[in-house]
Design a binder for these strands. Structure first.
Lengths: 356, 356
DNA sequence: TTGAAAGCGCTAACAT
DNA sequence: ATGTTAGCGCTTTCAA
């Protein structure tokens, strides 16, 4: 194997000097056709246009024709801002997510946005970087848009956030965690159970000297829950965790590789390693490949998330597959249906791959 | 090596029967504090509250105190919907992106959202699945929110989309492509140049029997541009493309693995393969590992995107690193700065890894 | 420095 | 079936 050369990551960007001009559109032309103009052009009242456009209330087919013709002719685009203000509920759904680097959240967004789009809802989002203070600020900013629902990750919020959400009167969905008390609706699965099952699986396979490689647990509280129940289960099984390596940064393939390297440098006789997720586990896998460490005979590897990539590996990754897309879908469906408060356990599935 | 077991992907979700109730919040309580109530409570006029809150116009320190106290006491959250309607411009930025599975787009969103949040803009998004018709529908839906800017991928839009965007009067940013004419602002790099440089690199390294493994090119037009300029460059260099394998679905590690398997089954004597992106290339890499095909001596592999994962591989992936996050950042900065129409070329970087 | 009042573009009674 | 009108909650002149 070739030794890994360390290559630099993407550089932060500074605003560039202006480059070529090459545009076919006039700069800033404001033309705003309003509903009133459509009404005028169609020779009907405003409310009639409104009814036709929303297909709500009654109007004749002929009127409909004329209105639509005027809409077409004028290139009218309804103003949802005005519409929302005038009516009661908005069709905005706000996502306040920890990260876009962790594939979990794009997956949730993907599941949700498909359902929302079908139902003519609009998704809005902001990213907290796992910072509860930032979460509070961003949640406040989102609430200012009077969304129909706010979706957050898990249960760990500041008092201020909770108070705000409670007072807002909009639906609150806490996703991807079930170990705690929901404010309103919760959709996901138990991270504690996931940690427990992972440990039980490794014990049953006969591994006794087990280590852990993880990313920042203070920030990612769900990973923290998995880890603590993992440790408890190991201890209860008579084979307490032997060593751990926790990396400061976000979860990544590189950190997984580095983490395993460090862990093995300190503790040589491990027979299995649990990773905080699949990215990290893949990094560990790469480390073993590079160092010629046989998997799983010499060292077993176990991940979390069940990314597609794990299935394509020469040895399919042993891991737990979580219903990320489904979490988004179900959450969105519950919002659309205006379902009562509830906790929906989507479960997870242990993937008995070839690495453990 | 263990033979790859094919494991199922995540199942589509049906809406589940209701499960346990476990909530601490009353279901749907609407309490809406308005600016007028704050004004009343503070004993000042509405416009004064508005000025204080936006820190715009003049007011005494004492007035400020009283207003803020009232805001605090009542738990007032401004209504941005009303604010936007009353004022001229919105601080919404709309993203109409092809996919959330392709990491490119979460990366762009990540770069943009950081900048937007700092400047108190709000990101809104929807996902087209690479379908131009859907793009048109979603763009129309987005325009109804009267965003300050709409960001799209590339230049290939329906006539209707273009017409709508032109008429909307809002800023239009076309991202991740520079091979075409921009409507307003373009930020990205040349995919044609990327394909060209990739081919030139492989030729320079002495590879002559080169194949291609890609995903659906009709939908991902940027991948199509890379591929066509790649082929042209090979042909010009006297070593035209020997074989290609195009998979119907989206780009993924599994498709990459499958694609290379099929390609090699048909064409045994290739010495290098160009992949439509790094996911696909990683799949190819896995195939080679599983089959004991030596890289790069027996077969060279070249990707596109420069994902972090490529750096953690036992042999760093040879690829082209694209400025995805920076594209989002710069685009957002240009919106915030209300910059004139322009095309910003962020370039890309060829990563001379160990696989080619 | 402050307040009164006129909208922003639409929806939703309420008439007709 | 359709028109009239009164807001939705804010921003923004314009006076005071």
């Amino acid at each position: 194997m070739v030794a890994a050369r360390r290559l630099p990551a993407e550089m932060p960007a500074a605003i560039p000097k202006e480059l070529g001009f090459k545009h076919t559109m006039d700069f800033k032309q404001q033309v705003t056709v309003t509903l009133a103009e459509v009404a005028e052009a169609a020779g009907v009242g405003e409310s009639t246009v409104s009814r036709v456009l929303r297909n709500h209330g009654s109007f004749s087919g002929k009127t409909r024709e004329r209105v639509m013709a005027a809409v077409e002719r004028l290139g009218y685009v309804p103003n949802r801002i005005a519409g929302t203000l005038a009516s009661t509920g908005s069709r905005l759904v706000a996502f306040v997510i920890p990260s876009l680097s962790n594939i979990v959240f794009p997956d949730v967004l993907r599941g949700a946005s498909a359902v929302l789009e079908e139902n003519r809802y609009q998704a809005v989002f902001s990213v907290t970087d796992y910072d509860p203070g930032k979460e509070e600020a961003l949640a406040a900013a989102m609430l200012a848009w009077r969304p129909a629902a706010v979706m957050l990750a898990g249960y760990e919020h500041t008092e201020g956030t909770v108070k705000m959400l409670r007072a807002s009167g909009c639906r609150v969905l806490e996703l991807l965690d079930l170990d705690g008390d929901a404010l309103d609706i919760a959709v996901g699965f138990s991270n504690r159970a996931a940690g427990r099952e992972s440990a039980a699986f490794l014990l049953k396979r006969g591994y006794r000297r087990i280590g852990y490689v993880g990313h920042d647990l203070n920030r990612d509280t769900r990973a923290g829950k998995r880890f603590s129940s993992f440790c408890e289960t190991l201890a209860a099984g008579g084979a307490p965790l032997v060593a751990r390596e926790i990396l400061a940064g976000a979860s990544s393939v590189e950190n997984g590789r580095l983490g395993l390297e460090r862990l093995l440098a300190r503790t040589r006789d491990l027979d299995a390693v649990y990773f905080s997720n699949d990215d990290m586990a893949l990094g560990g896998y790469f480390h073993c490949l590079a160092e010629g460490i046989a998997i799983p005979s010499r060292l077993a590897i176990f991940g979390y998330n069940g990314l597609d990539i794990g299935r394509a590996m020469p040895q399919p990754l042993s891991t737990i597959r979580t219903p990320r897309v489904a979490t988004g879908q179900i959450a969105a469906q519950l919002v659309v249906a205006d379902a009562p408060p509830q906790a929906v356990d989507l479960g997870f599935e242990l993937i008995d791959g070839a690495t453990a």
